[in-house]
Design a protein around this nucleic acid. Sequence first.
DNA 1: CCCTATGTTCAACGTTTATCGAACTATTGA
DNA 2: TCAATAGTTCGATAAACGTTGAACATAGGG
Lengths: 107, 107
Amino acid sequence: MVLDCLSDPIRLAIVYQLAQQEGVSSELCCGDFNGLAGKSNLAYHFAKLRECGLMQTRVAGTNRFMRLRREDLDARFPGLLDAVIKSAAKDAERLQLLPEGEVVAAD
Amino acid sequence: MVLDCLSDPIRLAIVYQLAQQEGVSSELCCGDFNGLAGKSNLAYHFAKLRECGLMQTRVAGTNRFMRLRREDLDARFPGLLDAVIKSAAKDAERLQLLPEGEVVAAD
DNA sequence: CCCTATGTTCAACGTTTATCGAACTATTGA
DNA sequence: TCAATAGTTCGATAAACGTTGAACATAGGG
């Protein structure tokens, strides 16, 4: 179930952004992901991520703040989250570097 | 793509059995997985696993021997395969131990 | 040379999935 | 109180997925 959840590009991006917040506020609210998809689509993905235990939601007024369930995940799937995030980081690097290289060359 | 591949229970079982062969022959042939699904269904899953670079096929006579592409995977997704296999092992343990406990108690 | 065993390919199917817009709930601020 | 903001829920739709059986290819043994 967790692997299936992580295999969707939008959900992986959500998890990745949440992981980058670890050590800072550890939290992001729904609106912070508006660039990834429409609101109703995001709510769908949030529900899936919650269902399989990947994240947790805290309601504060009209906002919902979400965070990774890092400890539970590391206990049940040791090393998995780190490996996935590290791979996602490598991909993000590649995807950012390659187009820049072409744009600069075309200038 | 790799995560999507690993998120199917049959493909995960295939990868898991292949991982257990590492250090022994490192290979299994199609027929060794007949318990998991029908032949044509297995061929479909084999193709998916090959497509995303998880395994490799060697043809020998009327048999096809498959092996994990461990080195390539560890290079591109460090720690991922190990984490997934370790988690699968924990699950296999749970699934085997729980029923046995009840059978022994009912004896 | 045929027959069997091993796998793949193809077409069909039912199910699940992601996506969208519209309607809805609830909270905040004027 | 009214309007705006932040999210969720629902229904519909199109695409992708897993599964199956039948037909096909190919190698090995009698």
